[in-house]
Computed example of a mutant assay.
Amino acid sequence: MKIFEKIITSYNKEMPFVVYRKPNKKSVSALFSTIDSLTFTNSFTESGFVFAPFDNTKKAILFSLENSEYINEKTSLDTLISDDKKNNLDEKSKKNHIKLVDKTIKEIKNNDLKKVVVSREELVALSDFNLINVFQKLLSNYKNAFVYIWFHPKIGLWLGATPETLLEVNNSTFKTMSLAGTQLFKNVNNVVWKNKELEEQQLVTDFIENQLRNISTNLTIDKTETVKAGSLLHLKTKVTGKLLENSNLKTLIRALHPTPAVCGLPREKAKKFIVDNENYKRTYYTGFLGEINFNPKSTDKNSSLFVNLRCMSIENKTASIFVGGGITKDSNSKKEWEETVAKSSIMKRVL
Rank of each mutant, 00 (worst) to 15 (best):
P296Q: 05
T34V: 11
I8S: 09
R282P: 00
L62G: 02
A60L: 03
E168N: 15
F129S: 01
F185W: 08
I71R: 08
W158G: 00
F135N: 05
V307Y: 02
K297A: 15
P16L: 01
D78R: 11
L232K: 05
F40M: 06
E245D: 15
G325W: 01
L31C: 04
K143D: 13
F185T: 05
K13S: 09
R310P: 04
K106N: 13
S82F: 11
N72P: 07
E197R: 03
D78C: 11
I274W: 01
L233D: 03
E199T: 14
R349A: 12
V147H: 02
E245N: 15
L80K: 13
K85M: 15
E268G: 04
T34M: 13
F185H: 09
K115D: 00
V116R: 00
K22R: 15
Q211V: 04
N189E: 12
S119Y: 00
N42Q: 13
R349Q: 15
F288K: 00
D78A: 14
K186H: 11
M15Q: 12
D222N: 15
K223P: 09
K335H: 14
R213W: 11
P258G: 04
L249D: 03
F174E: 04
D55F: 03
K137S: 11
E122G: 07
V227G: 03
K85V: 15
W158H: 06
R310N: 07
T251F: 06
K196Q: 01
E14N: 12
Q202I: 11
Y70N: 03
H152T: 00
V275C: 08
N218G: 08
Y11S: 00
F40H: 08
K74W: 10
K271R: 13
Q201H: 11
D128Q: 13
W337Q: 04
N133C: 09
F17P: 00
I71F: 10
N170Q: 15
V101T: 05
F129N: 01
C263K: 01
D330T: 05
E69D: 12
E69H: 09
R21F: 09
L233V: 04
K2N: 15
I132K: 03
L126F: 06
S247Y: 05
I327L: 01
S247I: 06
D112A: 08
P258Y: 01
Q183V: 10
